[in-house]
């Protein structure tokens, strides 16, 4: 049986972890590679690096981080943030990323999804969708890190990116993000049921109960979480054990 995945996410700025784990025993807690290794040890199913570096000349630093991580971790690694062209994608995959996540660039140029999927395979193209509720049961897509309302319907966009060849959707609820009040379950469920590809729920996880409902009620294939793991509230193993006890298939 396919396991439901737990994916920790690290925000990386200029090669350093901004929001990171408070693991003890790390020689350098700001080093993404150290953090990645710690998560691998805990049994994370995959890892996401979100590159929040603003300038493109710092992209080389991210390549180096990805390269070092891929040399030491034997788990799937997704990199998102500022990836705009086929060359950007190629460079990140060559550095050792298994998947790249596209957001604003996919909105501005949907052809990019098609081209990237046919060139590199759909398995490595994740489309990140930032959704915000506009009326009950309706969500709109935001671009530019949540700053710009595109006016596009989130469900329709999700179906479109699926048809364009995305292999997976990373769905963040802007309403829930940062609240620790739980994932936006209606949004997660609506998107999961609307598309044939896996959906990763993101934004709002504060408790292990939240992870459970993302799978049970949200019908997500995976959950992305940052703060509940970073601050040492729970380990990945604890999270998985609690999911297993709730009858949710996980890898332990």
């Amino acid at each position: 049986m396919l396991s439901n995945r737990i994916i920790p996410c690290l925000d990386v700025h200029s090669g350093r972890v901004v929001k990171g784990v408070n693991f003890v025993n790390l020689i350098d807690a700001g080093d993404p590679v150290e953090q990645a290794k710690a998560y691998e040890k805990q049994g994370a199913d995959e890892l996401v690096f979100l590159d929040i570096t603003a300038s493109s000349d710092e992209r080389a630093i991210m390549h180096d981080v990805v390269e070092r991580t891929a040399s030491e971790c034997f788990m799937p690694l997704t990199v998102g943030g500022g990836i705009r062209t086929l060359d950007d994608i190629r460079a990140m995959l060559n550095a050792g990323a298994d998947k790249v996540s596209l957001n604003t660039s996919a909105i501005e140029e949907p052809e990019l999804i098609k081209q990237a999927a046919s060139k590199f395979g759909n398995q490595c193209i994740v489309v990140a969708i930032d959704g915000k509720q506009c009326s009950p049961g309706k969500w709109e897509v935001y671009s530019h890190g949540g700053r710009k309302n595109t006016g596009m319907d989130a469900l329709k966009w999700a179906q479109q990116v699926t048809n364009f060849g995305a292999g997976e959707i990373l769905l963040t609820s802007m309403d829930a993000d940062g609240t620790k009040d739980g994932y936006d379950l209606p949004l997660t469920r609506a998107i999961s049921e609307a598309v044939s590809i896996p959906v990763i729920a993101s934004g709002g996880a504060g408790t292990l109960e939240h992870l459970k409902s993302a799978f049970h009620e949200g019908k997500a294939s995976a959950v992305l979480a940052a703060s509940i793991f970073h601050f040492g509230t729970y380990t990945i193993k604890q999270a998985k054990e609690s999911l297993r006890d709730a009858g949710i298939a996980v890898r332990l």
């Binding site: 439901n4 995945r5 997976e168 896996p198 294939s221």
Partner: peptide, 11 residues
């Protein structure tokens, strides 16, 4: 149809 394709993850 409730099962996602690609088959992605740990099995």
């Amino acid at each position: 149809a409730t099962l996602k394709v690609p088959h992605m993850g740990w099995n």
